[in-house]
């Protein structure tokens, strides 16, 4: 009897560990047509600052020959 309950216990533990290993992310994203629902891309700099820095960079690296 004792042996049976041990086997049952092990079975339950095994089943739960197997089932819980199916996915590491339980989150579900419900799709809506033409709506982006991914992560929001947050930039450290504002678009204006980024634009100015990149324009300066372009003038430095694309000096023409």
């Amino acid at each position: 009897m004792k042996l049976l309950s041990f086997v049952q216990y092990i079975t339950v533990v095994l089943v739960f560990s197997l089932v819980s290993a199916c996915s590491d992310d339980a989150g579900v994203t419900l799709h809506e047509a033409h709506v982006y629902k991914g992560n929001v891309d947050v930039h450290k700099e504002s678009a204006q600052i980024r634009e100015q820095r990149l324009q300066l960079r372009a003038r430095q690296v694309f000096t023409d020959r």
Partner: peptide
């Protein structure tokens, strides 16, 4: 894209979310 995982940044770059 059937799951709409693309977005366009303010400066016109077409990027996507690999999680979607």
């Amino acid at each position: 894209c059937p799951v709409d995982c693309f977005y366009t940044t303010e400066d016109g770059l077409v990027l996507h979310d690999k999680d979607l």
